[in-house]
Design a protein around this nucleic acid. Structure first.
Lengths: 206, 206
DNA sequence: GTCTATAACGAGATAGAC
DNA sequence: GTCTATCTCGTTATAGAC
């Protein structure tokens, strides 16, 4: 289950060009940002011309919209898969964190975290999609937190929505920092601490 | 004390051109990213030509190095000011968070958080400066945490260094998300929760 | 669906006058 | 220290042949 980064047709296999363009562009946005690559970059990587890219995505904004749409759909599918696979709230959260860890191990940022950094430079439809991605994640997390609190497996102060904000922000920011250090383990350690703070050993152990 | 964003000579007052260039460029990086503005953007804003900018900063990389150097120096000075002003660990942390909140209220990201997102596209000297900024922040935070744990005002599991990582990541990420929403209050609420988790009311209040 | 060719513009950068 | 002028290259995008 590599729903966050693999292509529908196999990441580097012989899929149609449209999917290969999206795969390459997605990786480039996650590594370098939307303003950090060009049609020439993608074209060279795929061994096609820029004109071919424009055939599939008339403008860079159109490409960006397609990217975030596909990413959000896959992310939503991944969340549904977690819901279907892991009944326990703690297991759901751990699986959620693993989605991020897997992206980071490939040297990538969360696509929407990267776009959030570049937010001011984005076209309105892309901005909107970023916000929707964030909201979707927060509401899913809040649901898991409420489940955990209800069954006694999680404890936290404040609302589930507020705690969901903390988790999402903490994961995105820790990912950002850990990627600069080139140290995915740093992310995993901090994420584990974040979850541990919800699922039991609260307070000091000095 | 606006050490994070004001210029030495007054942000928009009549300072020398070099400082005005740095002020404008700093704001542009924090709002749009290093790859999200050009010499033309800065020149137009200041009412000078691109050539004048190149006189002060021969290359965009040189401008970037000057930016992060000045930012890091000011940030370091702000941390020293906090150490001198607030003897209590809790007050130090609150003042630290306020540094970030002030930046966000201006619609900006932390300069180094933004550069961390663009890390892969940066010149080596700028990358190095980003890492040093992050390390400096983490070690300062770890010192405050150790002080708080020693005097009994703070409780946390794991090492002070690990907890410092969590705080820095949490602040940067929450800032990223809150800025996209255009909602600084969201940042302040999450940051307050983050601090509250250290300074007392641990565990559930269901 | 992909190519060649090119347009139109912007970016980073330099030379040399004032 | 700032200007005009220019250079070179990259970027997005289009036209039209195959």
């Amino acid at each position: 289950m590599k729903l966050l980064t693999a292509s529908t047709s196999g990441a580097s296999g012989r899929g149609d060009t449209r999917a290969r363009i999206l795969d390459a562009a997605e990786r480039l946005v996650q590594q370098r940002g939307f303003n950090g690559f060009s049609y020439a970059t993608v074209a060279a990587e795929l061994g096609v011309t820029k004109a071919a890219l424009h055939h599939h995505f008339p403008s860079k904004t159109a490409l960006g919209e397609a990217l975030i749409t596909r990413y959000s759909e896959r992310f939503a599918a991944a969340l549904e898969a977690i819901d279907a696979t892991d009944p326990q709230a703690r297991a759901k959260l751990a699986a959620y964190v693993e989605l991020y860890a897997r992206v980071l191990r490939e040297g990538r940022m969360c696509l929407c975290g990267m776009l959030a950094a570049e937010y001011e430079t984005l076209a309105p439809p892309i901005r909107q999609a970023v916000l929707e991605f964030l909201e979707h994640n927060e509401s899913w997390l809040a649901g898991v937190l409420e489940q955990g609190r209800a069954d006694g497996s999680m404890r936290f102060s404040g609302s589930a929505a507020e705690t969901a904000d903390s988790i999402l922000g903490g994961l995105e920011g820790t990912m950002l920092v850990a990627r600069s250090y080139g140290d995915p383990v740093r992310f995993e350690a901090t994420a584990a601490r974040l979850l541990a703070g919800l699922t039991g050993e609260q307070g000091a152990r000095s």
